[in-house]
Protein backbone atom coordinates (compact mmCIF):
# COMPACT_ATOMS: atom_id res chain seq x y z
CA UNK A 1 0.00 0.00 0.00
CA UNK A 2 1.29 3.48 -0.85
CA UNK A 3 1.83 5.88 2.04
CA UNK A 4 1.11 9.61 1.92
CA UNK A 5 1.91 12.28 4.54
CA UNK A 6 -0.46 15.25 4.75
CA UNK A 7 0.26 18.22 7.03
CA UNK A 8 -2.60 20.26 8.44
CA UNK A 9 -4.78 17.18 8.03
CA UNK A 10 -7.22 17.80 10.86
CA UNK A 11 -9.35 20.44 9.17
CA UNK A 12 -10.20 22.19 5.93
CA UNK A 13 -8.49 21.14 2.71
CA UNK A 14 -6.10 18.77 4.49
CA UNK A 15 -8.90 16.81 6.17
CA UNK A 16 -10.90 16.49 2.96
CA UNK A 17 -7.81 15.38 1.05
CA UNK A 18 -7.00 12.79 3.72
CA UNK A 19 -10.58 11.53 3.46
CA UNK A 20 -10.44 11.26 -0.35
CA UNK A 21 -7.04 9.54 -0.39
CA UNK A 22 -7.98 6.94 2.24
CA UNK A 23 -11.03 6.09 0.13
CA UNK A 24 -8.73 5.52 -2.83
CA UNK A 25 -6.78 2.99 -0.76
CA UNK A 26 -3.75 5.06 0.30
CA UNK A 27 -2.26 4.75 3.77
CA UNK A 28 -2.48 8.31 5.12
CA UNK A 29 -0.31 9.83 7.85
CA UNK A 30 -1.79 13.12 9.02
CA UNK A 31 0.15 15.80 10.90
CA UNK A 32 -1.71 18.42 12.94
CA UNK A 33 -1.33 20.56 16.02
CA UNK A 34 -4.34 19.95 18.22
CA UNK A 35 -5.06 16.56 19.73
CA UNK A 36 -8.79 17.27 19.98
CA UNK A 37 -9.00 18.21 16.28
CA UNK A 38 -7.04 15.09 15.33
CA UNK A 39 -9.41 12.72 17.09
CA UNK A 40 -12.40 14.54 15.58
CA UNK A 41 -10.80 14.25 12.13
CA UNK A 42 -10.01 10.59 12.65
CA UNK A 43 -13.63 9.95 13.63
CA UNK A 44 -14.92 11.69 10.52
CA UNK A 45 -12.59 9.77 8.21
CA UNK A 46 -13.47 6.41 9.77
CA UNK A 47 -17.19 7.17 9.74
CA UNK A 48 -17.05 7.72 5.98
CA UNK A 49 -14.81 4.74 5.37
CA UNK A 50 -14.44 2.17 8.19
CA UNK A 51 -11.48 0.50 6.43
CA UNK A 52 -9.47 3.73 6.14
CA UNK A 53 -5.79 3.57 7.02
CA UNK A 54 -5.22 6.80 8.91
CA UNK A 55 -2.67 7.67 11.60
CA UNK A 56 -2.20 11.08 13.16
CA UNK A 57 1.04 12.65 14.39
CA UNK A 58 0.92 15.69 16.65
CA UNK A 59 3.22 18.62 15.88
CA UNK A 60 3.24 22.42 15.82
CA UNK A 61 5.12 22.69 12.53
CA UNK A 62 5.74 26.41 12.96
CA UNK A 63 8.49 25.52 15.48
CA UNK A 64 11.51 23.90 13.85
CA UNK A 65 12.27 21.56 16.74
CA UNK A 66 8.76 20.16 16.33
CA UNK A 67 9.40 19.54 12.62
CA UNK A 68 12.59 17.67 13.50
CA UNK A 69 10.80 15.58 16.12
CA UNK A 70 7.79 14.64 14.01
CA UNK A 71 9.98 13.88 10.97
CA UNK A 72 11.91 11.38 13.06
CA UNK A 73 8.67 9.76 14.24
CA UNK A 74 7.42 9.53 10.66
CA UNK A 75 10.71 8.12 9.37
CA UNK A 76 10.61 5.49 12.13
CA UNK A 77 7.07 4.56 11.16
CA UNK A 78 8.02 4.37 7.46
CA UNK A 79 11.05 2.19 8.19
CA UNK A 80 9.06 -0.18 10.35
CA UNK A 81 5.94 -0.54 8.25
CA UNK A 82 6.48 0.82 4.74
CA UNK A 83 10.00 -0.39 3.80
CA UNK A 84 11.15 3.18 4.30
CA UNK A 85 9.13 4.38 1.31
CA UNK A 86 7.04 7.53 1.19
CA UNK A 87 4.95 7.86 -1.94
CA UNK A 88 3.82 11.44 -1.50
CA UNK A 89 4.20 14.38 0.87
CA UNK A 90 1.43 16.96 0.84
CA UNK A 91 2.65 20.18 2.47
CA UNK A 92 -0.71 21.68 3.20
CA UNK A 93 -0.47 23.22 6.68
CA UNK A 94 -0.77 26.99 6.51
CA UNK A 95 -1.93 29.97 8.46
CA UNK A 96 -2.94 33.60 8.22
CA UNK A 97 -1.89 36.21 10.78
CA UNK A 98 -3.20 39.72 11.36
CA UNK A 99 -0.13 40.87 13.23
CA UNK A 100 3.59 40.41 12.98
CA UNK A 101 4.20 37.42 15.24
CA UNK A 102 7.36 35.36 15.45
CA UNK A 103 8.30 31.74 16.07
CA UNK A 104 10.83 30.61 18.67
CA UNK A 105 13.62 31.32 16.20
CA UNK A 106 12.28 34.82 15.66
CA UNK A 107 10.95 34.11 12.14
CA UNK A 108 7.69 35.64 10.94
CA UNK A 109 4.94 33.05 11.52
CA UNK A 110 3.28 32.94 8.09
CA UNK A 111 6.66 32.58 6.39
CA UNK A 112 7.74 30.01 9.00
CA UNK A 113 4.70 27.78 8.69
CA UNK A 114 3.61 28.27 5.08
CA UNK A 115 7.12 27.95 3.66
CA UNK A 116 9.96 27.04 6.04
CA UNK A 117 8.08 24.16 7.70
CA UNK A 118 7.49 22.53 4.28
CA UNK A 119 11.08 23.20 3.29
CA UNK A 120 12.46 21.50 6.40
CA UNK A 121 9.97 18.62 6.53
CA UNK A 122 10.56 17.77 2.86
CA UNK A 123 14.29 17.73 3.50
CA UNK A 124 13.90 15.39 6.46
CA UNK A 125 11.65 13.01 4.53
CA UNK A 126 13.66 13.18 1.28
CA UNK A 127 15.40 9.76 1.62
CA UNK A 128 12.01 8.04 1.96
CA UNK A 129 10.62 10.05 -0.97
CA UNK A 130 13.58 9.22 -3.20
CA UNK A 131 13.21 5.54 -2.39
CA UNK A 132 9.61 5.57 -3.63
CA UNK A 133 10.22 8.03 -6.54
CA UNK A 134 7.70 10.13 -4.66
CA UNK A 135 5.82 13.35 -5.21
CA UNK A 136 5.80 16.54 -3.15
CA UNK A 137 2.65 18.63 -3.39
CA UNK A 138 2.18 22.09 -1.90
CA UNK A 139 -1.10 23.84 -1.24
CA UNK A 140 -0.55 27.09 -3.06
CA UNK A 141 -2.82 29.92 -4.00
CA UNK A 142 -3.65 32.09 -6.97
CA UNK A 143 -2.60 34.97 -4.70
CA UNK A 144 1.06 34.12 -5.39
CA UNK A 145 0.68 36.27 -8.51
CA UNK A 146 1.33 40.00 -8.60
CA UNK A 147 4.11 39.99 -6.03
CA UNK A 148 7.87 39.55 -5.88
CA UNK A 149 9.81 38.04 -3.02
CA UNK A 150 11.05 40.88 -0.80
CA UNK A 151 14.59 39.54 -0.68
CA UNK A 152 15.99 42.32 1.49
CA UNK A 153 13.13 42.02 3.98
CA UNK A 154 11.69 38.53 3.65
CA UNK A 155 10.20 38.57 7.11
CA UNK A 156 8.50 41.86 6.27
CA UNK A 157 9.81 43.44 9.42
CA UNK A 158 9.03 46.89 8.12
CA UNK A 159 5.35 47.69 7.70
CA UNK A 160 3.89 44.26 8.21
CA UNK A 161 0.94 43.65 5.96
CA UNK A 162 -0.80 40.32 6.56
CA UNK A 163 -1.89 39.92 2.94
CA UNK A 164 1.57 40.68 1.54
CA UNK A 165 3.09 38.15 3.94
CA UNK A 166 0.55 35.55 2.85
CA UNK A 167 1.03 36.22 -0.86
CA UNK A 168 4.79 36.06 -0.49
CA UNK A 169 4.64 32.77 1.43
CA UNK A 170 2.50 31.28 -1.34
CA UNK A 171 4.95 32.47 -3.99
CA UNK A 172 7.66 30.75 -1.92
CA UNK A 173 5.66 27.49 -2.12
CA UNK A 174 5.77 27.48 -5.89
CA UNK A 175 9.41 28.59 -6.03
CA UNK A 176 10.20 25.72 -3.66
CA UNK A 177 8.41 23.25 -5.94
CA UNK A 178 10.31 24.64 -8.95
CA UNK A 179 13.62 24.31 -7.08
CA UNK A 180 12.82 20.74 -6.04
CA UNK A 181 12.14 19.77 -9.65
CA UNK A 182 15.42 21.41 -10.72
CA UNK A 183 17.33 19.43 -8.09
CA UNK A 184 15.56 16.09 -7.83
CA UNK A 185 13.82 15.34 -11.13
CA UNK A 186 16.75 13.08 -11.99
CA UNK A 187 16.06 11.09 -8.82
CA UNK A 188 12.47 10.57 -9.89
CA UNK A 189 10.97 13.16 -7.56
CA UNK A 190 8.25 15.49 -8.86
CA UNK A 191 6.94 18.54 -7.05
CA UNK A 192 3.61 20.27 -7.70
CA UNK A 193 1.56 23.14 -6.37
CA UNK A 194 -2.21 22.92 -6.19
CA UNK A 195 -4.32 26.07 -6.43
CA UNK A 196 -7.35 25.19 -4.31
CA UNK A 197 -9.32 28.23 -5.47
CA UNK A 198 -11.44 30.06 -2.90
CA UNK A 199 -12.40 27.36 -0.41
CA UNK A 200 -14.78 27.48 2.51
CA UNK A 201 -12.38 26.70 5.39
CA UNK A 202 -11.53 28.41 8.68
CA UNK A 203 -7.97 29.50 7.80
CA UNK A 204 -8.76 33.21 8.20
CA UNK A 205 -10.60 32.70 11.49
CA UNK A 206 -7.83 31.00 13.44
CA UNK A 207 -5.77 33.30 15.63
CA UNK A 208 -6.45 36.40 13.59
CA UNK A 209 -7.75 39.84 14.57
CA UNK A 210 -11.29 41.16 14.13
CA UNK A 211 -10.73 42.68 10.70
CA UNK A 212 -9.19 39.66 9.02
CA UNK A 213 -11.72 37.48 10.82
CA UNK A 214 -14.66 39.51 9.56
CA UNK A 215 -13.41 39.76 5.98
CA UNK A 216 -12.71 36.05 5.84
CA UNK A 217 -16.08 35.13 7.39
CA UNK A 218 -17.81 36.97 4.55
CA UNK A 219 -15.43 35.85 1.84
CA UNK A 220 -15.44 32.15 2.69
CA UNK A 221 -19.18 31.94 2.06
CA UNK A 222 -18.42 32.27 -1.64
CA UNK A 223 -15.84 29.50 -1.41
CA UNK A 224 -16.26 25.99 -2.76
CA UNK A 225 -16.28 22.90 -0.60
CA UNK A 226 -12.83 21.51 0.31
CA UNK A 227 -13.77 18.39 -1.70
CA UNK A 228 -13.03 20.28 -4.92
CA UNK A 229 -9.27 20.86 -4.25
CA UNK A 230 -9.06 17.39 -2.64
CA UNK A 231 -9.84 15.94 -6.09
CA UNK A 232 -6.85 17.73 -7.60
CA UNK A 233 -4.54 16.35 -4.89
CA UNK A 234 -5.94 12.86 -5.52
CA UNK A 235 -5.47 13.33 -9.28
CA UNK A 236 -1.78 14.19 -8.82
CA UNK A 237 -1.26 11.23 -6.48
CA UNK A 238 -3.08 8.71 -8.65
CA UNK A 239 -1.40 9.21 -12.04
CA UNK A 240 0.93 6.28 -12.69
CA UNK A 241 3.24 8.44 -14.80
CA UNK A 242 3.91 11.68 -12.94
CA UNK A 243 2.33 14.66 -14.76
CA UNK A 244 4.80 17.13 -16.29
CA UNK A 245 3.29 20.39 -15.04
CA UNK A 246 4.01 22.44 -11.93
CA UNK A 247 0.84 24.31 -11.02
CA UNK A 248 -2.56 22.62 -11.04
CA UNK A 249 -6.14 23.70 -10.48
CA UNK A 250 -9.25 21.53 -10.95
CA UNK A 251 -7.02 18.67 -12.18
CA UNK A 252 -5.65 20.83 -15.01
CA UNK A 253 -2.38 22.64 -15.54
CA UNK A 254 -2.50 26.37 -15.02
CA UNK A 255 -0.23 29.33 -15.73
CA UNK A 256 1.84 30.65 -12.89
CA UNK A 257 3.61 33.90 -12.08
CA UNK A 258 6.58 35.00 -14.18
CA UNK A 259 8.50 35.38 -10.92
CA UNK A 260 8.79 31.59 -10.81
CA UNK A 261 12.24 31.13 -12.32
CA UNK A 262 15.10 28.79 -11.49
CA UNK A 263 17.15 31.83 -10.49
CA UNK A 264 14.62 32.94 -7.88
CA UNK A 265 14.18 29.35 -6.73
CA UNK A 266 17.93 29.03 -6.16
CA UNK A 267 17.89 32.24 -4.20
CA UNK A 268 15.05 30.99 -2.03
CA UNK A 269 16.83 27.69 -1.47
CA UNK A 270 19.97 29.46 -0.37
CA UNK A 271 18.05 31.65 2.08
CA UNK A 272 15.86 28.86 3.44
CA UNK A 273 18.80 26.49 3.86
CA UNK A 274 20.47 29.14 5.99
CA UNK A 275 17.33 29.70 8.08
CA UNK A 276 16.85 25.95 8.63
CA UNK A 277 20.56 25.13 8.88
CA UNK A 278 20.34 22.32 6.32
CA UNK A 279 21.75 21.71 2.86
CA UNK A 280 19.79 20.19 0.00
CA UNK A 281 21.98 18.37 -2.47
CA UNK A 282 21.55 18.40 -6.21
CA UNK A 283 21.09 15.09 -7.96
CA UNK A 284 23.13 14.96 -11.15
CA UNK A 285 21.62 13.70 -14.39
CA UNK A 286 23.25 10.41 -15.32
Amino acid sequence: MKTIVITGASSGIGLETACTLTKKGFNVLGVARSEANCSRAEEKILSENPDANITFFLADLMQQREVHRVAEEINKYLNERCDGELYALINNAGCVRSWYMTTEEGYEQQFALNHLASFLLTYKLMPALIKAHGRVIMTGSESHKGIKVHWDNVKLFRRYNPLTAYKQSKLCNILFAKGLNDRYAAAGIRAYVVDPGLVNTDIGNKETGSLVNLIWSIRKRYGVSPEIPARTFAFLCEQEIPPEGLYYCLCKEKNYSRQVTSENADRLFELSERLCDIHYGRVQMI
Binding site: Q64, T103, E104, E105, G106, R274, L275, D277
Partner: peptide, 9 residues
Protein backbone atom coordinates in the same frame (compact mmCIF):
# COMPACT_ATOMS: atom_id res chain seq x y z
CA UNK B 1 16.11 28.74 19.58
CA UNK B 2 16.26 32.53 19.29
CA UNK B 3 20.07 32.45 19.49
CA UNK B 4 20.13 29.99 16.59
CA UNK B 5 17.58 32.04 14.64
CA UNK B 6 19.62 35.24 15.05
CA UNK B 7 22.92 33.62 14.08
CA UNK B 8 21.36 32.19 10.93
CA UNK B 9 19.90 35.52 9.88
Amino acid sequence: CIKRGLERQ
